[in-house]
Every structure is written in C-alpha cells, then in structure tokens.
Design a protein around this nucleic acid. Sequence first.
DNA 1: TTAGTTTAACTAAACGTTTAGATAATTATA
DNA 2: TATAATTATCTAAACGTTTAGTTAAACTAA
Lengths: 206, 206
Amino acid sequence: MEIKEKHSPNAEEKILSAAIKEFAEFGLAGARVDRIANRAEVNKAMIYYYFRSKENLYQTIINRHFTRIGKLLEEKIDPEDSPELIFFKLAQSYDAVFEKNGELVPIFLREVASGGDRMNKILVDILTKKGLVAKLQQIIDRGKRNGLFRKVDSRQAIISFVGMNLYYLIMSPIVNSVLEIKNQKEFRQKRQKEVVDLFLHGLEVK
Amino acid sequence: MEIKEKHSPNAEEKILSAAIKEFAEFGLAGARVDRIANRAEVNKAMIYYYFRSKENLYQTIINRHFTRIGKLLEEKIDPEDSPELIFFKLAQSYDAVFEKNGELVPIFLREVASGGDRMNKILVDILTKKGLVAKLQQIIDRGKRNGLFRKVDSRQAIISFVGMNLYYLIMSPIVNSVLEIKNQKEFRQKRQKEVVDLFLHGLEVK
DNA sequence: TTAGTTTAACTAAACGTTTAGATAATTATA
DNA sequence: TATAATTATCTAAACGTTTAGTTAAACTAA
C-alpha cells in the first residue's frame, strides 16, 4: 500500500532545484513550466502558488545563487596574505565554485547574452566598493609601491587575471576539444598554479 | 514616388541579417519567426521557402559566420613575425572581430551555454591542426628552445592569452560597470598593449 | 503559358497562467 | 476538550493566447 504525503514540506525547494536544471538546459525562453513541474514531481499550479510566474521563479534563482557565490568569493580573500597566496587562493576558489555550481554556468552565460539586467546589479553590489575588486586593486598597488611589481594598470591586470581563470572554466568543453586535452582533471588542477605563475611573473620587475 | 520592388533580389540576405539580430536578442528558443519576417520586411512564408525551418536558419548563420571568423583570425598570424608582433596582432584581431561582429557575441554565448553542439565542430576544424592553435604552440615552443621563454606549458599559456583577451571583450558590459570604467573606448584600446605586455613578461626569463 | 515568387489566411499543437475546489494542518472558540 | 473557523497546501482541468509551420491562391516575368 502506498502512502502518499499530501503536504510535502519541501515542494518549494524541489521546484527550485528542478528549475535550475531546466533553465540551465534550455534557458528562460526555452524552459517549459510543465517540464519543471515533472522534474520536481509537483503539480504545475504549485509553481504559480510559490512563485508567481516563470519569470519570477527565474529571478529568484538568480538572486539567491549569485549573491551566495559573490559573498563566498569575497570571504576567501585575506589582504594580510602575500600576493602569491591571495592570487592562488582566488584561482582555487574560482575552480571550486565552478566545480560545485556547474549548473549555474549556462544560466550565467545566457544572462550575459541577454544584457545581464537581472544579474548585473547583484554582481556590482557584491564585487565593487570594499569588495573583491577593491581588495585586489590594493594588493597590486601596494606591490607597485614596494617596487615588487611593474607599473601596470591595476584594473587591466585584474581583468587579465580573472579572464585567465574564468575563460577556461567557462569554455572548457570547447577548449578541451580544440586543444585535445585528454586528462582534463589533471590539466585543470595544474592550471591553477600555471595561471598564478604566469600572472605574477608578468607583474614582477625583472 | 516610391518604387516597390516585388521580386526583391536579396530577400534571402535580408532574412539572414534580420535573423542575426533576432537570435542575438532573444536566442533560438526566444526568437519569433514572425518578428524575423517583419524585421526583414518579407512574408513569413519566405523564411520557410529559403530556409526550411527556424532551426535550419539558425544553423546556417552559425556555419557561415563562425567559419568566416575562424579563417579571418588564422590569416592574421604570420609565423615569421616576432612573438611580440604575433601576439599583438592577435590581440588586435580579437578586438576588431568583436568590434565588427558584436551581434554574434550573444549568439556565441548561448551556443556555449547549450553545449555548443552546433558550433563545436566548426571551431575545432578551423582552430586545430595546422591552424591558429598549432601556430601559437610553435611560437611558444620555439621561444622555450631559444632560452627566451620560461618552461611553461604552452597549452596552458595559450588558454591564458586567449582568456585575457576574450574575457573582457565578451563581458565588457559587466566588467565596465564593476570596475567603473568611464572612457571605455580608450580603456579597450590600451588593453591590447597591456595584455600582450603582461603575457610576454610572464613568459620571458628574468 | 508557365515556372518561379509572394501573399494572407489558416491549423494544430504547445504554452503560461488561472480557476474552482479538495484536503490537511493550524488556530480560535465554547 | 470538542468543535468550528481559518489558513496553507495541493490538484485536475481548462482558458485564452501564441507559436511554428502549411496551404492554396494570386501575382510576376520570360
């Protein structure tokens, strides 16, 4: 005899995690509310009961997760650490974030593709002013004053570092097949050191 | 008096360029065939006459443009040039490609987001084997033999260089607002030299 | 005439959303 | 404590709209 719980205590969470998968696979326009309901094993109307619309469900996911990840990254940076350690920790953190939140990558990319209005404000709030970016800028500027680093534009350098890291993490399926990378796990782990190494050699005076 | 050509000789081209705009703005799933027809100022049935389906129209665009851009980039690289010149030309070419083909960026991003099956093969064909990637690998390996470059992993270095370049070109709307970049045109132009400078200093032995 | 184009009108299916109501859990009242 | 009222959770079915794709007829140029 089957016991069917009427009041599932976690219908809302089931919808959210089903929706992440659906949006990741098909995007907002391509996502089907019926499919989300099926994946979550709830009645379709439940989605409208907890979230007022497909759009609102999507926005909820964006807000929750990008805020969470922004905070998570900022916590990792301790300005008391050496530049080497800071940039290595950051490279590690980027890698860990992508490892654990892979489903969000397609959502992020499609957001950028459509202008990123839903995500832009969140990222600016988290990263700017006293946040990650300001901290990194201080590290580089301090190094320049110390005579350790060359007189590079610190904002350009930050973009370069972030780009070196994120580009591979975002594009790894394509990059791996173009570069014929066999042992991807090993390549990805080695990459953390390689990136920091290249970046710091690029900054340091000869 | 207005002359209205009935048998417009370029309906096919008008559909294609209207479709690029539509796909860039809304993606494949969000694109509406009626809107493409309106933008192109042709009847909807014309789209099915020239291209059999929305999907096929989309694939046609992907094939045409990514093949074109891949070839364009490869032509820019002359292995006889110095490493400095090669990487600077490449940074310039990336910038020029994005400047002239900005509409394709959202299409590219959404392709990556959905696994890139439609685009992957084209990129591999163009970039790999005797292509751009092999040429760059030769430059770096030659530098290592010369004692000019440190013993870095050349594939990792290539990804880093491409990432430094493409990340900003792709994400510039977000990056510009996070870093509060005012004069974007100037920043973007300076970036070409900054990127090559950082990369080569990173490669060179001290 | 005839083959190649172009059109408006059409269809079947899919879609997001709403509805009306059922059931279970919680709270208020006597 | 027992019962009534209220609220929260859930469901099946349907609604009105939008969609990609079709079609049959009309127009154009040779």
